[in-house]
Write a protein that binds this DNA or RNA. Structure first.
Lengths: 176, 176
DNA sequence: TCGATCATGTAATTGGTTACATGATTGC
DNA sequence: GCAATCATGTAACCAATTACATGATCGA
């Protein structure tokens, strides 16, 4: 399940342009995978070369022309195969925890400040998720909706964990 | 806080070889950042070039020679600067959730099976963390210890989230 | 004798990112 | 008149992985 497979997943339901794909990403998928045009267009190119998609140019006036991508039979097979392939457990990456590991080198006030800053950022993410919730509720299928609620819960849990960590940081304030 | 800064963080307390650094990573740090020799040695090389560390060769008999890396004043400054630099919130990446997003393309039994597989893998991680806990308790400073307990809690929370998601998957079994 | 541990390193590849380049239309 | 939206794409770069290469020693 790399970027190519995710794009194929989107194309399973309907044909789309690279631009459309970017939009879908930043909507329902943004929580656990961002993506930029710099990776979408090269991916589409190589997928066309490999026969996983077909493209058709739609001439438009006023706005730029669209290159509409349609998944092929081969593409559908590749997608389903990837969806069923063994899942490799990725490492959980957390830049704040990685820093906290070295907090002995900061002074006590800084430690709490940085924890609070991270909490603020998490809260901002939580807010954004809440903001797009109505759109998810309208357009997502049950699995996509479940995906979204899992994302919300993960953020909520993480915030609680960091809040408690911040409390602990205050307690070990005297440590140098 | 990229790999170079994390290495510098380790070197703040004592001089180490590339090999030592790898060991420390896979112990206390493994939860949220893995690392291979293929990235450690090139990093050390470029850090020496930039004057962030000094190296000294320790000739050994029987076992291979050691190249002992020591952080310089410039390295200490670079580390502290990085530790205090603004934190960029990384995206939360979760390959299972990314797949679940497309679960409409699987049949109901498969959905539950794959969720269970992911749970098994998470449980394996939880078990490994429990296994190294005694070592953490012995050697880690309070912040590193806190880091570890946060990691444990995050895994535990995630397992509960996925368990509940699996229950939901069973409920929407009829959806095609 | 076979695999693990100690120890360093390079090369090829992966999987992205950011910045750049282009250019019309629409809304404030 | 300026920013945002629509729309496609390339180039330079980055951070890391995996596989490869070398080779001794020690314990089961």
């Amino acid at each position: 399940m790399d970027i190519q497979h995710i794009i194929l997943g989107f194309l399973m339901d309907r044909s789309m342009t690279g631009y459309d794909i970017r939009q879908r990403f930043s909507l329902s998928f943004s929580f656990f995978s961002g993506i930029s045009y710099g990776s979408i267009y090269p991916a589409l190119k190589s997928m066309e070369k490999d026969g996983l998609i077909n493209t058709r140019l739609e001439i438009q006036e006023g706005t730029p022309n669209k290159k509409i991508c349609t998944i092929t039979k081969k593409g559908r097979e590749a997608f389903l195969k990837a969806l069923r392939s063994p899942l490799s457990l990725e490492r959980y990456k957390n830049l704040f925890l990685a820093r906290m590991f070295f907090f002995s080198h900061l002074n006590p006030e800084e430690r709490v400040t940085y924890a609070q800053q991270y909490l603020d950022e998490l809260n901002e993410t939580r807010r954004k998720l809440e903001e797009i919730q109505p759109q998810i509720e309208k357009h997502a299928d049950p699995f996509q909706h479940l995906c979204f609620t899992c994302g919300q819960r993960i953020i909520k849990d993480l915030m609680e964990t960091i809040q408690d960590a911040a409390k602990s940081l205050k307690k070990i304030e005297k440590w140098s």
